[in-house]
């Protein structure tokens, strides 16, 4: 298993406030890795920086053997790193189909795009029913599905998922997590951010615990799920 993503000593600041103080993590090919932590721990900031929406203050980010820290967002997508961002951020005035097509914006292989479209619609049958509906008029759960499906349309090597279960009804949360496992079966590596630590640890291979901007713990997901400190802080035990 080779390393796909390596983040080393990452620091990110908003003005003079250091939101990410010390984050180092690796994601190997084929893995599901989860980054758990409470609200404001710096999870989304870390993902936004990996995707190039924020510039790091210090540290390095290496993707598939290439430094990507400081590169523009669109250059990073071109390398095969796609993100389904926090709060879905779908294009509200575009149809589901247009949203999905935009996910494949940088690709030119028409036939492959079409087959990927069918693949994600199979994964999320609800989206097929709503294919011509405007994104902004769908329910929160449907928008979340669209956000994940749209990121998959970029044919990523690594998929970043930021809080895919946030604000969803429990039955939808289950569907989302089942789908995450299915996505990995299709050969896509996943870095997952979750507040729902129990569900995240359940599907992940490895996990990192982020606390006020620094990685406090890491290890196998099953081990961390049994860890007393983790249980206390994040699993409500």
């Amino acid at each position: 298993m080779s390393t796909l993503l390596e983040v080393k000593d990452l620091q990110v600041a908003y003005g003079s406030i250091l939101a990410v103080k010390n984050v180092s993590l690796t994601v190997n090919e084929g893995e599901i890795v989860t980054l758990i932590g409470s609200n404001g721990a710096g999870k989304s900031t870390t993902l936004r920086t990996i995707s190039g929406l924020l510039k790091p203050k210090a540290g390095t980010i290496t993707f598939a053997g290439e430094r990507i820290d400081g590169k523009e967002g669109h250059e990073i997508v071109a390398k095969g790193l796609c993100q389904s961002p926090e709060g879905r951020r779908i294009f509200p005035r575009m149809s589901v189909r247009e949203n999905l097509e935009l996910g494949a914006f940088l690709r030119n292989d028409k036939a492959a795009i079409e087959s990927d479209m069918q693949r994600v619609l199979e994964l999320f049958p609800r989206l097929r029913e709503r294919i011509e509906q405007k994104g902004g008029t769908m329910s929160g759960g449907e928008q979340q599905m669209l956000a994940v499906a749209r990121a998959m349309m970029g044919a990523p090597k690594l998929l970043l998922l930021d809080e895919p279960s946030m604000g969803l009804a429990p039955v939808l949360v289950d569907i989302i997590f089942e789908t995450i496992v299915k996505i990995r079966e299709q050969g896509i590596t996943i870095l997952l951010i979750e507040q729902n630590a129990a569900a995240a640890l359940d599907v992940a291979d490895r996990a990192y615990v982020l606390e006020s901007g620094s990685i406090k713990m890491s290890g196998n997901a099953t081990d961390l799920a049994k860890d007393e400190a983790v249980t206390k802080a994040y699993l409500g035990g």
Binding site: G73, A78, Q83, R89, I90, E101, L102, L106, R150, G154
Partner: peptide, 24 residues
């Protein structure tokens, strides 16, 4: 056109457009 699509996406959400690989 493709450029027009990029314009419409950027108009609706710049960060999301970046995540699609659009050069904003």
């Amino acid at each position: 056109t493709r450029q027009g699509k990029a314009m419409r996406a950027t108009a609706q959400d710049q960060d999301a457009a970046r995540l699609m690989g659009i050069n904003v």
